[in-house]
Nucleic acid binder design. Sequence first.
DNA 1: ACGCCGCCTTGATCTGCGTCAACACGTCCA
DNA 2: TGGACGTGTTGACGCAGATCAAGGCGGCGT
Lengths: 254, 254
Amino acid sequence: MSPFDINRIRELGPAVSNESVEREPGPSPCGACSVRHLTFCAPMAEDELGHVSKIVSTIELHPGDPLFDEGEPADSVYSVTAGAVKVYKLMPDGRRQVIGFLFSGDFMGLAHNDMYAYSAEAITHSAVCRFPRKKLEQLLERFPKMERRLLGMASHELAAAQEQMLLLGRKTAKEKIASFLLHLSKRAEARGQNPNPIAVPMSRTDIGDYLGLTTETVSRTFTQLKTSHLISLQPANKVELVDLQALRDIAEGA
Amino acid sequence: MSPFDINRIRELGPAVSNESVEREPGPSPCGACSVRHLTFCAPMAEDELGHVSKIVSTIELHPGDPLFDEGEPADSVYSVTAGAVKVYKLMPDGRRQVIGFLFSGDFMGLAHNDMYAYSAEAITHSAVCRFPRKKLEQLLERFPKMERRLLGMASHELAAAQEQMLLLGRKTAKEKIASFLLHLSKRAEARGQNPNPIAVPMSRTDIGDYLGLTTETVSRTFTQLKTSHLISLQPANKVELVDLQALRDIAEGA
DNA sequence: ACGCCGCCTTGATCTGCGTCAACACGTCCA
DNA sequence: TGGACGTGTTGACGCAGATCAAGGCGGCGT
């Protein structure tokens, strides 16, 4: 699991160093960001790539750092290049709904009007790429095919959101937790990370706010799954999915 | 009161008839469909419009008629031109989550892969416009700006889905119902219909499956709001929002 | 006109999860 | 070294909403 084997692309734009690459689990803004440009816009011709790399900048975030808040003018779109970020909505009395957890390769900030629809905050030490909206739009003007890629990503997001509605509206606590773990595993695999002892970097409270549960219920359900030998809790916030099929059965409500 | 009782599904082929304009609140496939093309793709040049009208066909649906099922190959995108349609997901044991209610001007079927992510079924006597995916894609090739419109619509959908997550995960039954009624009202207004005594064409069961509640709780909450003089239930499934501000306060959890 | 059938409403009871509370454990810093 | 703090776990109890059950009502077909 070597984080980023750079070589892929060298940044042409500002704030670029073609040598500085961290191989750590920690963020590696530049290298990872390059990789992300590819993911974000791939496949992309050389000239396109040049244009894209000129408009981005990398931001490093520490655990708990806010990136933007719901209601702020949405002047940028972001792509996560390392770490984990949560996006959430708040009610006036403080009730919180986590809309999603973002990892390397995920994007956020596509707003249908001019304001962010949610707040974003780093969970772990993270790095994100910033795409100023104005410049991104100019780029879309120039390379209309990028819109299809964006549309594809938005559709994907939409399908995920609808799946989450089913979870929030109709699943039990146990089904929610099982679905959540399987989802995390699938996404880790998709991004080339170890899908089985999965990293679970977010707190019980965050998980609860994502699944429509309290931290106590999350905790109890974890121990229940552990006691039934479906999962095993490991050090460093890792969770091993011991009986995948049983978890799948539970997640689907079978 | 059956505005039209013609043959069930009447495919209108390439030509959009420009004369048949209905004046009824009931569905009006041809006229409305034309209008919808405009909405779907507006603003659109004359030649574009010509192209679009060549690829669509109109389908008439009666209450309870299915349009497509989750898991089917997604060969078409649909735009509702009259009536009301629900889209929903099912769990193996029959639990149901209604993902959304669609009215005139709404579209569905944007799938991120090749299968529909949900099932669609008419609630009232309805009409929808069918856009074969293949032909739509050719059109997108020819008129890339349409993709921006589609992207805008998808982003809008996404924001709505995220708002619904907050509702499903964190709101009480009363807050859910109040939010739902206000949402219906806003959408009726957006489409130029009466926003106050609002039409509520879907059943209590559908509402419950949309809000993550049972029909009994939906019913009880309606009577509770009625008893508190916040709403008034009128004949023909109409609901009057008597105290808008109080409803808004409840919906926001204030 | 009648009876059937869906949908809605209402009541009684049950329960999954929330709430409140206590405590264990690790980390940080004085 | 100790204590304050944040995070996680566990227990006891309560409640919002689910479940079970019983009508009411209106539309529709014969």
